[in-house]
Design a protein around this nucleic acid. Structure first.
Length: 277
DNA sequence: CGATTTCCCTGGCCGC
DNA sequence: TGCGGCCAGGGAAATC
């Protein structure tokens, strides 16, 4: 489940590989989530990221407006580069879940495989995210000065929703998903179910914890539980460093009590019943 | 309008 | 071995 560290890992690998290369063609699976892949044209300027969205800048061939190819990997989306001499290519027996592909100048294609089709592709005028609600309404990056202990605290105080649900909503801070939310709340010793109030010290702990767990995830090339792979097809390593997520029934590394698993607003949640009050 | 619920998808795993 | 049932879950649409 690609979250910020996984998407950023892919971005860092993809940018030098496709920067300055013209697109020569595209193929799409054809359902609404992927069909806009066909609209992409021009030359790649750079690959950037906002939250869990990859943004591939495209300089127009001539006269037309510059575009951005927006890719969200969803749950099982994978990007890879493959040798492919044909200008457009669809699924094969060895890649049954191809959803979109873009031929690059020089005989290589950028392939987007996504078994469960939770991912999506959009092409917009550069910088215009008005048609993409999720991206348009995205909160600050975790390292943006606009994301502060106070902004985090105000979000919790000003809402009736649980703190974990707010983190997953992408509007308080961008890029945190289920794994890193559980990790950050554990590190900060705050209950995922906390709602309506958050002390300033607790907000400060959580703010730091969010940055720390995302940095650690990035350092380890992301978390691979089952599906995530980087651009080269390799797994991440951060699953070896998780303190909370996936450890239900195992002892809390702080207090030794068994971590509990429960559902919170439809999301599987793991937390320590003692030190995350 | 904000909050909550439902739906989208399929591979992998479990139990019989 | 085969198979039905269930779970994973980000985001957007639908509904409350």
């Amino acid at each position: 489940m690609p979250e910020l560290p996984e998407v950023e890992t892919v971005r860092r690998m993809l940018d030098p590989r496709i920067r300055s290369r013209p697109l020569r063609g595209a193929w799409t699976f054809g359902t609404p989530k992927f069909e806009q892949a066909l609209h992409a044209s021009g030359t790649v300027t750079q690959v950037s990221r906002r939250g869990k969205y990859l943004l591939i800048g495209l300089q127009a061939d001539r006269g037309e407006r510059d575009q951005e190819l927006v890719i969200h990997l969803g749950m099982t989306g994978r990007l890879s580069l493959a040798e492919d001499r044909s200008l457009v290519s669809g699924p094969t027996s060895s890649r049954p879940h191809l959803r979109a592909s873009w031929a690059l100048d020089g005989g290589e294609s950028l392939m987007f495989d996504d078994a469960r089709r939770f991912g999506r592709v959009a092409v917009v005028d550069a910088g215009d995210y008005s048609a993409l609600a999720g991206l348009r309404d995205l909160g600050p990056e975790p390292w943006d000065p606009a994301f502060t202990p106070a902004s985090l605290r105000h979000a919790v105080v000003g809402s009736r929703r649980a703190v974990k649900t707010l983190l997953l909503g992408q509007r308080v801070v961008a890029g945190v998903g289920n794994i890193y939310a559980d990790e950050a709340l554990w590190m900060a010793a705050i209950s995922p179910r906390r709602r309506g109030r958050l002390s300033t010290p607790a907000a400060t702990r959580l703010h730091s914890a969010i940055r720390e767990v995302l940095e650690a995830g990035l350092e380890h090339g992301g978390t691979t539980l089952r599906d995530y792979r980087d651009l080269a097809g390799d797994s991440g390593e951060h699953q070896l460093h998780l303190a909370c997520y996936g450890r239900a029934g195992l002892p809390c590394r702080r207090c030794g009590v068994q971590l509990q698993r429960y559902e919170l607003d439809g999301r599987s949640t793991t937390a320590c019943p003692v030190c995350q009050r």
